[in-house]
Each structure stands twice: as structure tokens, then as C-alpha cells.
Design a protein around this nucleic acid. Structure first.
Lengths: 234, 234
DNA sequence: CAGGACTGCTTTGTATACACGGGACTTGGC
DNA sequence: GCCAAGTCCCGTGTATACAAAGCAGTCCTG
């Protein structure tokens, strides 16, 4: 199934702009496989939300506007917020809280002495872990499934603007605020404050929205380096 | 693609209980088609959330617990709530509000003179329309897409407990409350009250949760007549 | 000149045959 | 007697050939 990764990569790197119809025969030649696995691959990418099924068969690369990206981020916030609220309402075991605390400490350790000094690589990894664990603590496989789904769109992922290739001051500075929200979120869950946890998670996601806004309007060359932003059309 | 509908129907009617692994060859014989379209069908049902992909290939019928159903309903409420909030925040055109008002009136007309007299058939149809239009008014294709997805699980659908086969007093009585919530929801959107709209939509969905609770604990024979409830296992 | 129908091509849908991989069972050796 | 290795079977992955459907372009007719 290397073909799946290959096609996904091509779409994510902008080889096939949004709205491009993908024909089976040429794709089969490009990927050096026959039509049957091509269909399989496209079907999976449709599940991921990267392709749309056409009414009369066939697939097109899904096309995203700036507004869609904003909504996808908002949606991620809503879903993570729900997971956080459920975790708070239903309660989290001591082991779960310990796990969150440990990741929190790992995130903390990524900040160096200087005000602008961050180990982005380590932060990005711990951040992804934090979000994954948080969602798991909702104790709801249904919610977890949908969060993971919403997160699969690269520009909506919690780590979208943390790629090590994007050493942008504006992004780095947001990390202190983000980390404070992480801490507050954990405190809210520990204190069974469902509403607080929910809205902190939402606001947390809106950092990504702000970063997106910055990339699109202030620093357009970032569109090429931040993963997924090439998918944005108009 | 009648095979798709046929297999979906079989799963929804409980022919293949949750956790059942679906093998391609026997399924191909059952459905009277070859393995290739069987794979296609299963792939689509996986997209719908009725099947799960196994790690090493193959599919199993997704298995739902009571808690999963509760969570799926809550999730639907959260997503519809988000749509309602966005509609309120972003504003809805006069034409949109008129459309909502018209459906509201149609719902109203379903209640007869008696306290327990309802044209369930008409109500169910208008109710489905109301929810669809409401979500459309969010003006967000991303949110709309995910609401429709969450709604595809039959027991999480807004019309789950409105099937005409389930003339249960407990369900009918909830309709007056539901209709009041519909009216309030429209008022909230008209008044740009985002938070109110969001939480009304959530609470509205929780009527379904209550009905589910009733079906499972008070009137188990309903499990067989309410569409989708046969999917619930433990 | 315009509209409709027919034909041909392009593209997806379906069937079938073959390849590959994994797991279980059996057999042989220690 | 137990463990390990090999083989066989079951099930999915892949390729290819063929069928059917949709679309467009052209030609014929009114």
C-alpha cells in the first residue's frame, strides 16, 4: 500500500490542485499499479476527506477555501472541546491525570531560557501526544473517532503550524499562550469543570486559526511550507 | 449499486450482529455479485461508519454499546449546535429565515386538537427537513458535511424515534417539547444569540437520548422496531 | 439554420484468474 | 513430551479483460 502514501503525498504537496479530477487509467500508470488498487486507494482517500466522490463515479481532489480551513479548525476545537468536557464530567483516573501531567512537564521542558527559545521538534511531538491523550480521556470511542477524523485534514491538525521547517517568530510566540492553555485545560479536567474545559479547548484551537490568518494574509510564502496549506484555493 | 443498499439493509436489520467479520467470498455469493464490487460496497459502508476496517485487511460489522449510542447522540447535538451557533453568529438571510419559519409552521400543523394527537408521518418528514435546513444555514460546508456524517448512524439521526411504526406514547409526548425547542432555536438564530442557539440544539438532541434510555430500560421490545437499535450489543 | 439522433470514444463498473501472505496444524527432531 | 519448522489452506491483494454507460461531436433532416 505504498501507492496510498504516494498519492496522498502528491495531493498534499499540491501536485493535484483542488478540483482536479483523478482518472483511473493515467493514475494507474503514474503509480505503476493497475486500476483495481487505484480504486481502493482513492476510496480510502475519500474516507480521509482528501477526495470527493463524483455523483456518476470518479473522484476529484477536494477543494478547500480559506473559509473551509477556518471552519475545519473551529470544528476540531469543538470536537476536542467535547472530549475535554466529557473527560471532566465523567472523571479521569489518577493514572490518566498523571499521564497528562507528565506530558505537560515534557512540553514545559521544551522552553529554553530565552524568551524565544523553543525546541520545536520536541514540542511538536509532545503536543501531538497531549492532544491524543486528552481525547482518549473522554472515554468515548465515538468522540475519539470523530476527533481523529477531523484532525486528519493537515491544516486542521493540532500540529499544523509546528513543523520544524516553519521557524516563524509569530508561531513560536504563540506557544507560551498555548502551553498556558494546556495547563488550564488539565486543571479544569482535574477539577471536573466541564464547561471550562470545553471552552479552553476551543480557544486553544483558535490559536491555529490565528496562525492560519497570519500565514495567509501576512506571510503568504508560508503557504508553501506549512503542511496542507497548498490545498487552499481561493 | 443495489448491492450496497442490500448489504446496508441486512446490517441495519441485524442480520450481521456487531463484531461479525464479513468475508468477501461468501458475501459475493449471497449478494450474487463478484468480489470486486463487494469490496467497493464494504469500503463505502466503512465510510458510513457501519463497518470497521481490520488492520490486516477485511471488515467487521461495527459494534455499538449503549454508551456509544448515547455518545453518538451527544455528538450529533454538539455538531448541530455548532451549526446553529454559526448560523446565529454569521447571520441568516431573510430567505433562510422564511424557509425555517415555513417548516416550523408545517411542524405546528402536525399537532391535532387532542393532547396526544400527532401526524407522525408528516412530523417526521418536516422534522428531517428542519434539521437539514438548519445545518445548511451555518453556511459551512465543512460543518454540514460532518453533521450529515454523524447523522448517518441510524440511532443518532434526528428522526430515529419518529418512525411511524413506533406509536409510543412516551415518544409522542416529547414532540411538544421538541417543537418548543424548534421555535426557540429559530428565535435564537434570528436574534443572533449564538450561545443560546448552540445549547438549545444540544438539549434538543438529548430528547433522543431520553427516548433511547426509555427504549432500552423501560420498553425493550422497542429495540426491534426503532430503526438502528438492533445494532446495540451490550 | 437549428434541433435531434446516432455513433464512437472515454471512463467507470464487473468478473475472473492468479499471486501473496498469514495462521494453524502436523510432523520431525531433540 | 515439547518445541520448532515447514506446509497447506484460507482470505485478501492485484492484474487484466470485458461490459456498460455517459458524453460529445457530427451528420442528417425538417
Amino acid at each position: 500500500m505504498r501507492a496510498l502514501m504516494e498519492l496522498r503525498k502528491k495531493i498534499l504537496s499540491g501536485d493535484y490542485p483542488g478540483g482536479t479530477r483523478l482518472f483511473e487509467v493515467p493514475l494507474a500508470e503514474t503509480l505503476q499499479i493497475s486500476r483495481t488498487p487505484v480504486r481502493e486507494v482513492m476510496s480510502r482517500l475519500a474516507e480521509e476527506g482528501l477526495l470527493d466522490r463524483l455523483a456518476n463515479g470518479g473522484f476529484v481532489v477536494r477543494s478547500f477555501t480559506y473559509a473551509d480551513a477556518v471552519d475545519a479548525i473551529e470544528l476540531r476545537g469543538v470536537l476536542e472541546g467535547t472530549a475535554a468536557r466529557l473527560a471532566a464530567e465523567r472523571g479521569v483516573s489518577q493514572a490518566g491525570m498523571d499521564q497528562l501531567g507528565e506530558i505537560l512537564a515534557r512540553l514545559e521542558a521544551c522552553f529554553g531560557g530565552g524568551p524565544d527559545e523553543v525546541d520545536l521538534e520536541a514540542y511538536s511531538e509532545a503536543n501531538a501526544k497531549f492532544h491524543a491523550v486528552l481525547v482518549g480521556l473522554s472515554n468515548s470511542s465515538v468522540v475519539q473517532r470523530e476527533v481523529e477524523r477531523a484532525t486528519r485534514l493537515p491544516f486542521a491538525s493540532p500540529s499544523a503550524f509546528l513543523s520544524s521547517r516553519t521557524h516563524v517568530a509569530a508561531f513560536r510566540q504563540s506557544l507560551h499562550i498555548a502551553q498556558d492553555q494546556h495547563r488550564s485545560l488539565v486543571a479544569a479536567i482535574a477539577g471536573r469543570e466541564g464547561a471550562r474545559a470545553e471552552f479552553l479547548a476551543r480557544e486553544h484551537a483558535r490559536i491555529a486559526r490565528k496562525n492560519l490568518e497570519y500565514a495567509v494574509y501576512e506571510n503568504p510564502e508560508l503557504m508553501l511550507t506549512v503542511p496542507g496549506l497548498v490545498l487552499l484555493n481561493s
